[in-house]
Design a protein around this nucleic acid. Structure first.
Lengths: 114, 114
DNA sequence: TCAATGAGATACCAAATGGTATCACGAACG
DNA sequence: CGTTCGTGATACCATTTGGTATCTCATTGA
């Protein structure tokens, strides 16, 4: 074991990977890719309470993967494409290891950023 | 809440995303990308016991991200590029979505400039 | 005005997670 | 041989995680 102190703050990369680690949250991301949804609408699609879905949405928000817009008493949850960037960046570090599927994906996003 | 039972087996996608959710495990992946390593070598790089590193390696192995080859009394841990496929596949599902959204974003910015 | 509706906050719980300490075991080497 | 070295396995612990129940608050609409 090395003796230097390895402190590790919560980076956006960590929060994004953590957000994607749960199958329910990945399902939510897929649903929000189809259309923006309120918590109530999302809850209809799962076998869990609104409170549980809300927790998942908080984690997704911490990860930068979604944004929320208040509209009256409703909250519109929306996918935030930019939030995926840290994940894609980390994965692209291994270009020489896995195939170029990722490269294509990342290049598409880079193109559109400009 | 929908009433149908949503059982969810441990898929390779889930195991891979779960493996990548921990910062120590992502560090291990990066180190193994540089060179194959034994547990002892990896443990030298972290402030934790060999047992803890071993647990992380087990999770990485479950996720299909590494393979282990016995050589004498040593175990060589090696990165398995194929294991990343489910992750890349899942992410590429949103290729078109990100493309479109980032395009819209770009266009909105361009409009506001004028 | 006031009841219904959509959502946030909090307390609480069981299980999973990330870590340690410790023991066991086969391979390497004097 | 016997001992040391690299590793695996297990028991145990504290914290995090994913979930429920419940209460509150603000908006909506008859």
């Amino acid at each position: 074991m090395v003796s230097r102190t390895v402190y590790r703050m919560q980076t956006q990369t960590q929060n994004a990977f953590r957000a994607l680690a749960d199958p329910t949250r990945r399902d939510i991301v897929q649903m929000l890719a189809a259309q923006d949804m309120t918590i109530a609408q999302l809850t209809d699609q799962f076998e869990m309470t609104r409170a549980a879905v809300k927790k998942h949405l908080t984690v997704l928000s911490d990860g930068g993967l979604i944004t929320v817009e208040a509209r009256g008493r409703e909250r519109i949850n929306r996918l935030e494409p930019k939030g995926m960037a840290p994940v894609l960046d980390w994965l692209s570090y291994f270009d020489q290891f896995w195939d170029d599927r990722l490269n294509n994906l990342k290049e598409a996003i880079e193109r559109n950023k400009k």
